[in-house]
Simulated scan of single mutants.
Amino acid sequence: MSLFSRRKLSEYEPNDHQYQLNKLNFKVTKLEDRIDNLENDWECASQGESFQLANGIDAKEAANRVEKAAQKALPNELKKAFDEINSAVKNEQQSIRLWQYKLGIVNGEPQWVRIYHIAALSRELKKYGYETKLDSNDSDGRFSSLKVSWEGKETSDISKIDPAKKYILPLEDTECEITDSVTGKAISHEVAYACPRDDKWEIIYERKIYSDAVVVPGKNIISAPNWVKSIEPIEAD
């Protein structure tokens, strides 16, 4: 190497050394900041103060969200369960088993898909006179199931129906609060009702102070599916 080349290289050596030193100082500063944050969190914890990450939720809030999801899904899951019960009755069965999940295909990939929230469904079906038994085979619930039986049980309130009168058929424990999107305050409450629509019984949401949209003639209820007959009828005013 020529003398000229060596001199040119040496001119950059101090600058390169300073650059490496600056990088090291920056890493040390970042490490000190992390240590300070950990010390602050530890101090808060030792003094009984709570601290959370952004968007963090505690266990109680997580459980509440799961329960709300189950309650929101309950009306449709109850109707689906009554459809399965009705089909079993036609086959002269006295019990069925409802699975919490099934293996399906989502976006071309196999995936476990929830069918029922069986704990919430079990509580609800008991109100209609059914015997229920939860059978949990694993911790994550993939193979959990609910046995529903009706041997020797009266599950219909059809004897209470007068064909000449009108009724509403609200599903128990389906009331939900409607809030204003701006203020967050409750502005009304809705309830799930069973109603005939285009020769098919469906579950719809209507205000708690119901309208004629959910009023059903008694003669329609008498010929309704079993899951409809199992709902406690309330005579419309």
Results as ranks from 00 to 15, higher is better:
204 I>C: 01
90 K>C: 06
53 L>D: 06
140 D>F: 03
91 N>C: 01
143 F>C: 00
149 S>W: 05
148 V>G: 01
63 A>R: 09
203 I>S: 10
164 A>L: 14
221 I>E: 07
105 I>V: 14
183 T>Q: 04
46 S>W: 04
111 Q>D: 09
153 K>D: 05
111 Q>G: 05
48 G>T: 11
233 P>I: 05
50 S>G: 01
49 E>G: 01
175 E>C: 05
188 S>D: 15
43 E>S: 06
138 D>C: 03
203 I>W: 02
58 D>Q: 07
207 R>N: 14
87 S>Y: 04
45 A>H: 13
75 P>V: 10
197 R>A: 11
22 N>F: 13
231 I>Y: 01
31 L>M: 09
235 E>M: 13
222 I>K: 11
212 D>A: 15
86 N>M: 11
237 D>T: 08
88 A>T: 03
222 I>N: 00
109 E>R: 15
97 R>M: 07
180 D>G: 06
206 E>P: 06
53 L>I: 07
165 K>W: 00
225 P>C: 06
139 S>L: 04
89 V>R: 03
205 Y>S: 11
120 A>H: 05
180 D>Q: 05
79 K>N: 03
110 P>V: 03
174 T>A: 07
207 R>G: 15
203 I>A: 13
166 K>L: 01
142 R>M: 05
82 F>N: 01
108 G>E: 04
97 R>H: 02
84 E>V: 07
204 I>N: 05
40 N>F: 09
67 E>S: 07
7 R>V: 11
66 V>E: 10
230 S>H: 03
163 P>S: 15
220 N>G: 00
16 D>N: 04
51 F>V: 10
71 Q>N: 03
122 S>Q: 11
57 I>M: 07
69 A>R: 14
9 L>H: 11
165 K>Y: 12
209 I>V: 05
3 L>Y: 05
69 A>I: 04
17 H>K: 13
201 W>S: 10
170 P>L: 08
77 E>I: 05
64 N>L: 14
141 G>Y: 13
66 V>W: 01
133 K>L: 09
196 P>L: 13
81 A>C: 06
93 Q>H: 10
148 V>Y: 04
39 E>P: 00
33 D>C: 06
229 K>F: 08
84 E>D: 14
18 Q>M: 12
12 Y>S: 05
51 F>K: 15
50 S>W: 00
9 L>E: 12
15 N>C: 04
223 S>E: 15
73 A>V: 01
12 Y>F: 14
48 G>A: 06
120 A>G: 01
126 K>F: 00
47 Q>I: 06
124 E>D: 14
179 T>W: 00
7 R>G: 02
93 Q>G: 09
126 K>P: 00
35 I>K: 12
196 P>R: 14
158 I>E: 03
193 Y>C: 07
66 V>L: 10
36 D>V: 10
52 Q>Y: 12
